[in-house]
Every structure is written in structure tokens, then in C-alpha cells.
Amino acid sequence: MASTRVAEILAVVVDGAGRASDVPPRLIRACTAALPVSGVGLILMTDQGPAGIVATSDSPAATMEDLQFTLGDGPCVESSRTGRPVLQPDLARTGPERWPAFSAGALDAGIRAIFAFPLRVGGIRLGVLDLYRDRAGELSQADMTEALSFASAATAVLLHLQAQRSTDGGELGAIPVLEDRAEVHQATGIISVQADVDISEALVRLRARAYASERPIVELARDVVHGSLSFGDDTLAG
């Protein structure tokens, strides 16, 4: 099944990582190795725009992220804003019209193709995984499948890092694949209202509760949707 590959990627990048902060660089190294791309960048995004560069594989990738950070625009920023991948197999042909300043800088750095994958869980905006290539050309269907699996893994990693920050660190355990089930998303929405927190914090709390109670997140989510579990003020956070 699809999530098997994502779990496999997560296991590989977590295994051997000493601290949580080692995981993103390991992830982009694995991504660069697994795909016919020249380099990879991982950035954080908020509703306001780029919020930080998490990891970049090499100098052009760093330039690509710096440019978007400075300009506040580019394929990666656009992909986060719209929630859809922005695939630019031939940046020299299609880029300058859409993002003139960004494209000039990126082409100058030797970037010829960019594939940007938004790392979002519905209304939760986490970041973007940016793949670049030093020559033009599309990703094959198999490469696309692999890239999307890495995007799912990167989403799980960013969620995990966010949860760690809100609970003040902790041991680096296994990073679970995000359960993409209707109940989980509905419960996240419900918790955001019950606990009066934003949607991203709501998902962090649901995942933390599932982890602490050693119950599958789908089961817990179902209880929230059916009203037998509440995350109101009387509930301890996280």
C-alpha cells in the first residue's frame, strides 16, 4: 500500500538520527539520492509566507530558498498558498513570466527545473518540499510517486518537530505516518473549536493524546466525532 513506502522512508531517516534536528537533513539527503534530481530544499511556511529554511542539500538549493524568502514569491511559495504542487519542468521557458525576479536568480544559479510539493494537511500549512534539477525535463510517473511519498514523509516530520517544540523536546521516537482518514480531519476541526486553538495545534493535541494513551489515532478521532471524548478547557493540553 501507498503508506508503506512513506513509513519506510520515515524509518530510514529516523534510524541513526541522534536528535530531532538531524532528521530534516537526513530526509533531504535520502530524497536527493532516491530521485533523479540535483538537490532538495525544505522550508517552513505560515499563512504569511516563508518562515524559515529547515534544510538544503547544496548551494543552488540554498539559493532557491533564499530567493523565495527574500522575494516572498516563487513556485514554492505559490504551491503552499494554493495547496497544489507547482511543477516546472522547464523553468527557462515558463518561469520568467510568472516569477521574473525569482526565475532570474534561480536560472543564474544553474536551476533548470523545479518541482515544489506543498506540505499541508488541509488548513494546516507546514512547509514546502522543493526539488530542483540542473537540466530541463519532466519527472516520470514513477518518480512522481516517489516524490509524493517523500512529501508525505516530510509532512510527518514537520508535524513531529512542531509537536516536540510545543511539548518542549523529548526523546526522538518513531515518527508515525499521518493517518489520512476523514474521522481524523473532522476530529481535528472539532478539537480546534473545543480547545479554542488553531487547526494545527488541534492536530498536535490529537496526536499527542493518541500517543500518550497508546490508542490508534483513528479510534480516538471517532470518539471525538461521536462526542464521547472532548478536548475542552477541563482537558490537559497535549
Partner: peptide
């Protein structure tokens, strides 16, 4: 996913 979250909220 967004619609499911909104249904819940």
C-alpha cells in the same frame, strides 16, 4: 482534507 476539517469545526 480541508473540507473534512471544516465539517468538524
Amino acid at each position: 482534507v480541508l473540507v473534512e476539517q471544516a465539517k468538524g469545526a
